[in-house]
């Protein structure tokens, strides 16, 4: 079961950096983070932070897709967004399972996760400007948000594949390779958003009857 909103009650843990304060009992020790990179000859802290950021991105993307589904006035789009939301949620599960496999908490929130959360929130809050665009523009805005988040998901998968390739033979590498394989299985659905956006934009430019 994927967790879309991380809270203390659900087991949220993290690593404070700069301005953030996290109670000692909820701080993941650096040694635990470093350990995942040891055999793989990677920087364990960077890998852990990257995975947690990618997981956070999938959570935000799932929320954005659900929000788009509730806001769109087009039935077919609603179904697409719901499917995309399910897919992002499945990807959250993949990342949470990967973190656990690497002996880290599933709900680890790194400084990089906070940054990913913030960047995605910028997109998700796009509909706050819905009052100065027409109905078609609002639909385009919703689609753009879902598409941009999906594009990042696809790019994250390939980046993760690169990390797996760079890793030395180790349980960490094995786990990364397996996760990438899972993440790639349903990439086609996310890629469809790119095609849908293209079709929608082209259709929008065609002159309507006077």
């Amino acid at each position: 079961m994927a967790t879309l909103a991380i809270t203390k009650d659900k087991g949220g843990v993290g690593r404070p950096e700069g301005m953030t304060v996290i109670s000692a009992a909820q701080v993941v020790p650096l040694a635990q983070l470093k350990a995942i990179g040891k055999q793989a000859k990677l920087d364990g802290v960077v890998v852990a932070d990257l995975l947690s950021a990618m997981a956070m991105h999938e959570r935000e993307a799932a929320g954005a897709a659900l929000a788009a589904a509730s806001q769109t006035e087009r039935t077919s789009r609603r179904k697409t967004y719901e499917t995309v939301a399910e897919l992002h949620t499945e990807r959250v599960q993949v990342f949470e399972a990967l973190l656990v496999k690497l002996q880290l908490p599933a709900l680890y929130v790194s400084p990089a996760s906070r940054a990913a959360h913030f960047l995605d929130m910028g997109l998700i809050q796009g509909p706050l400007l819905a009052g100065s665009v027409d109905a078609r523009g609002r639909e385009r805005m919703l689609l753009d948000v879902a598409w941009l988040l999906a594009e990042q998901s696809l790019a994250n998968t390939e980046a993760l594949a690169g990390v797996a390739t760079a890793a030395a033979t180790s349980p960490t590498r094995t786990a990364l390779v397996k996760a990438v394989k899972l993440l790639r299985t349903k990439a086609a659905t996310l890629k469809k958003l790119r095609a849908l956006r293209r079709t929608s934009l082209v259709a929008g430019t065609k002159r309507t009857k006077p």
């Binding site: 809270t7 203390k8 993290g14 301005m19 953030t20 304060v21 996290i22």
Partner: peptide, 11 residues
């Protein structure tokens, strides 16, 4: 001052 983190803060 520093701030709490929304993912880990006690409600």
């Amino acid at each position: 001052r520093r701030h709490y983190d929304l993912h880990t803060v006690d409600p």
